[in-house]
Design a protein around this nucleic acid. Structure first.
Length: 436
RNA sequence: GACCCCUUCGUCUAGAGGCCUAGGACUCCAGGUUUUCAUCCUGGCAACACGGGUUCGAACCCCGUAGGGGUCGCCA
């Protein structure tokens, strides 16, 4: 039988990474088995399920490249089918009506648990079981006539032909109910696998208030979709060897439920950042340029493409996240850059620095050609003949040129900035900080 | 409280009775490379929750304890 998995989120405008990891595992499992990965939008909450919220969901999935087979099933279109099924259960005596008083709107439909002990083979956690006396009947249609999650969810999974339900382990208790429902509905019970939850940096469960746990937030913080994907897969799974950076094909090939962890995993931004850096390095020049240009555009930096490309070459290897790019390149494109106060105090405002910078400017001015090699040569000669140390010359020069004490290699930077800009910046720095 | 689940370095994990002197990765620390920062290279710190069994032998099996978590809605 063909494997079919699904992702069944309710569109609320935000997708939590815990949910998204479940989606990723479903996708991986389906692809590994050559099966299908379906989407079901559980949009019965009309208040929150706006077109925008649905779009946010779709965007997140596209960003992580979770391609879906077939058209999404919108749960809101299935209400009649749900209610019809409830009627059948009622007529078979597998459900009953009762006024529990909850909504104050009369009777609701309650599913009758079979009264036998239940047990199933969880794809991740092994054998799970529960005694009959610990399972209670539950509502499947509210007294206002709307179907409850349990009914809708099971019916839709049957409708979509889902063979494997991979979901968070907060659903374990529901699974016993759902299994009973499948049986009452004369449907095949799918395989279940329950994923342990993801915890925040404090090792505590993400609460609804943890603002940094949404997929969109990671995108905004400058993480790459591929990197987040790779990282999320490894939160609770490993291939069993030492690989950690894996391509999609490799992941699809290696992914099995048996290798999933059954204990919770904590999200570590430092490791994600490291992994993202690895993915930034793997970007082709064209891809890097595209992301860099859009990052700069967002930051309001206008740039000549050819000049910008030279700059990118300099910073390429230093970038960990997309968000690093704009601040790192800003001073290449504007004279309005900020001077780091501490650096100015410690490296610039010292005896002899003014003279040094003036001398350097003089040397640069008289250079026949102004490029990486010539500036390198000239400055080395100057340092040698003047007896000044490298630090005494290079550090102030760097701050004069870009305002900060660290950055890309200096000589290529000189060439890219060009003589005019370099001289102007040195002069301005002297005026600003080194004139009596 | 009841029921269920989980427990290897700070974190993600390898480990399915002898290969474990418990391996890898991130972080951190030290050294090297570098004008600086980052990269890179080398090295280092660091864990089987605890207590009982079973066994010639246990991180791996069993029991218990502790800690953590989930569920107990006419939410999903």
């Amino acid at each position: 039988m063909k494997v079919r998995t699904r992702f069944a989120p309710s569109p609320t405008g935000n997708v939590h990474i815990g949910n998204m990891r479940a989606a990723i595992y479903n996708w991986l499992f389906a692809r590994h088995h050559g099966g299908e990965f379906l989407l079901r939008v559980e949009d019965t909450d009309r208040e929150r399920s706006t077109p925008e919220a649905i779009q946010t969901l779709l965007d997140a999935m596209e960003w992580l490249k979770l391609d879906v087979d077939g058209a999404p099933l919108y749960q809101s279109t299935r209400m009649e089918a749900h209610l019809e099924a409830a009627e059948i259960l009622l007529s078979k005596g597998l459900a009953y009506k009762e006024d529990k008083g909850g909504l104050g709107q009369g009777e609701c439909v309650i599913f009758k648990m079979p009264g036998t002990d239940a047990s199933f083979e969880d794809g991740i956690k092994g054998t799970l079981s529960k005694a009959a006396e610990n399972m209670q009947d539950f509502v499947i249609v509210r007294s206002n006539g709307t179907p409850v999650f349990h009914l809708a969810n099971v019916l839709d999974d049957i409708e979509q032909g889902i063979t494997h339900v991979i979901r968070g382990d907060d659903h374990i208790e529901n699974t016993y109910r759902h299994m009973a429902l499948y049986q009452a509905l004369d449907a095949d019970v799918p395989n279940f696998a329950h994923l342990p939850m993801l915890t925040n940096a404090q090792g505590k469960p993400y609460s609804k208030r943890d603002g940094d746990a949404f997929v969109g937030d990671f995108r905004e913080k400058g993480f790459l979709g591929d990197a987040l994907f790779n990282y999320l897969v490894f939160l609770g799974w490993s291939p069993g060897d030492d690989r950690e950076i894996m391509t999609r094909d490799e992941l699809v090939d290696a992914f099995t439920l048996e290798r999933c962890q059954s204990s919770p995993a904590q999200v570590d931004l430092r490791k994600l950042t490291w992994m993202n850096g690895e993915y930034m390095l793997k970007l082709s020049d064209t891809e890097f340029e595209a992301t860099a240009f859009s990052a700069m555009e967002k930051a309001g930096i206008e740039a000549d493409p050819d000049y910008a490309r030279q700059v990118f070459g300099l910073i390429r290897e230093r970038v960990k996240t997309v968000a690093d790019i704009a601040p790192m390149v800003a001073y290449f494109f504007t004279e309005e850059f900020e001077y780091n106060a501490k650096a100015v105090r410690k490296k610039l405002q010292k005896d002899g620095v003014r003279e040094t910078l003036e001398k350097v400017a003089e040397i640069f001015k008289n250079l026949e050609t102004f490029d990486e090699a010539s500036t390198d040569k000239a400055l080395h000669e100057f340092i040698e003949t003047s007896g000044l140390g490298f630090g005494a010359v290079m550090a102030p020069l760097r701050i004069a040129l870009c305002g900060v004490p660290s950055g890309p290699e200096l000589f290529p930077m000189l060439q890219i900035l060009g003589r005019d800009r370099v001289l102007a910046r040195i002069n301005r720095t002297i005026e600003l900080y080194l004139s009596e």
